[in-house]
Structures are given as C-alpha cells and as structure tokens.
C-alpha cells in the first residue's frame, strides 16, 4: 500500500478507536437538532420554525465550534509523536516528511468529514421526519450544502493545527497556540474589521471592503452559508459583503486556498526542521 494511505488509514482508525468520531458526531447532531427545534425558544415559541432560520443559526454557531474541534483533534498530530519518539522512528522508514504530512491530513480530514456527515446528516433526517412544513428534498439539499461547507472549514483548521504542531516542541505549547489561532480568527478578526470600519472609514475605498472577508476563512464560511439561504439576513461584519456579487464557486475556491496554503506552509516548516 502507498505509504500516504497507510498513514491515513492508521489516523482514521485511531479516530474511531478513541471515540473522537463518535463524540464529534454526537455534538454536531445535538447542536443541529437543538437549534432546529428549540432555537426559537427565546422568542417564546417551541418547536420547528423554519429551515432557513435553522440553517442561519447553525452557520453562526458552527463557525465557533467547528474550528475549535478541528484544532483540538489535530494540534498534537506531529508534536505528540515527537514527544513519544515515534516521529524519529517513522522518519527512518521509507517515508518522506511530505508523505507523512499528507497521510495525516487525509486521515484527520476523513475523520472530520465523517463526523460532519454523520452528525449533521442525522440532524437532517430528524428535521425532515419531525419538522412541520419541512420538505424532505429541500432539507436534504440545504444540509448537504452545509455539510460540504462545514467540512471545508474543518479542513482549513486542520491545516492551521498542522502549522502549530510542526512548529513547537511541546504538546502544551501547541494546545495554547491553537487556542490563540481560534481566538484570533473566530473572535478578534471581526472586531478588528468593525473597528477599522468605524475608525478609518475614509481611508479605505468602499469597493475593497468586501474583499476583507477573503482574509478570514470563518467569515467566508458564514458568507457562503448565508448566500445559500433565502433570507440573506446579513449581520455584523458580514454587512460589508452584502453588496458584493461573489459567486459561490469563487468563495469555495478561496476556501480551498485557505486549506492548501497553510498545508504548504506546514510542510515547508516540517521539512526544514531537524529531528
């Protein structure tokens, strides 16, 4: 078997063995079902309201939780094996560092994809069975799209986790740095953009504003999901992109860049580092 696939297979089996896949699937499923049937509790009603509002709240909560889970899953991918001494051993095998990195990416990527499909897929099933006025074909289509975008977002953060994992020497440092990455991209970035909008309004040409969304994969994720729903309820920082006519394939393409470029950077660092 190709060494890349051997590594990928082992990583995926590890994900099954240590219950990561089950745990993440359950979290995703509960999150989606909860939002679908109890999301409207704040406005005084219980039960399924509409698919669009479900998808909107799922996207805005998913943007916090999906990156966090991907980072937690992968921050120790390399530094963990380095601490255990197995990395040194693996590198004496007929296996290049790039092959090892790709194998780990495929394995972890498959773990996240499976959890997304099982977790949100089961939620889709529940919604189409018990949701009033929820037409099965629409539910399936909407959830299938969401699963695809959520998987892309997971892969972006696996790449980020790999950069962290190959750069540091201790597992605890990798965990801390991963949290910093999450904090910066998920929380701080939007605040910074808003501050920029308010404080330096005159210095930025209005037509360049929407492109600021390209700089953050989590905003891209929210934007793609928003474009998939009918409501188009732009909120917060996403307003800057409301008038831009980005096509979905273009945004998906940029998401792929956010997967590949960090992965390339991780590979470069990994290959340069001594053992």
């Amino acid at each position: 078997m190709n060494p890349i696939l051997s590594v990928a297979r082992k990583e995926f089996k590890d994900g099954l063995r240590n219950r990561w896949i089950v745990a993440i699937s359950v979290i995703f499923s509960l999150l989606a079902i909860g939002l679908a049937f109890f999301g409207s509790a704040a406005s005084g009603t219980l039960g399924f309201v509409s698919l669009d509002s479900t998808m909107t709240s799922l996207a805005s909560l998913g943007v916090f939780i999906i990156p966090l889970i991907a980072l937690m899953l992968c921050y120790d991918a390399f530094v963990g094996e380095k601490e255990a001494g197995t990395l040194l051993l693996l590198l004496t095998y007929p296996l290049s560092k790039t092959q090892l990195l790709l194998g780990k990416f495929i394995g972890h990527g498959a773990i996240m994809a499976t959890a997304n499909i099982v977790g949100f897929g089961s939620a889709a099933l529940v919604v189409s069975l018990f949701g009033e006025n929820a037409e099965t074909s629409v539910v399936v289509l909407q959830f299938a799209r969401f699963i695809a975008y959520a998987t892309l977002l997971s892969w972006v953060f696996i790449s980020f986790a790999f950069i962290v994992s190959v750069s540091v020497e201790e597992k605890s440092k990798a965990a801390g740095l991963s949290l910093v990455v999450w904090f910066l991209l998920v929380l701080v970035f939007d605040l910074a953009i808003l501050a920029l909008l308010v404080g330096a309004q005159d210095m930025i040409a209005p037509q360049t504003l929407p492109y600021l969304m390209w700089l953050n994969p989590t905003d891209l994720f929210r934007l793609i999901n928003l474009m998939a729903t009918e409501t188009q309820a732009y909120s917060g920082v996403l307003n800057v992109a409301a008038n831009a006519n980005f096509s979905t394939p273009l945004l998906v393409g940029i998401m792929f860049c956010w997967i590949l470029v960090p992965l390339f950077i991780a590979n470069t660092i990994f290959n340069r580092k001594g053992v």
Partner: peptide
C-alpha cells in the same frame, strides 16, 4: 531508538 514509546492505544 532509545526511549521509544509506541502508540499506547494500539
């Protein structure tokens, strides 16, 4: 190698 600890869960 010296001091290698293999994958404990396997």
């Amino acid at each position: 190698p010296e001091n290698v600890s293999f994958y404990d869960q396997l």
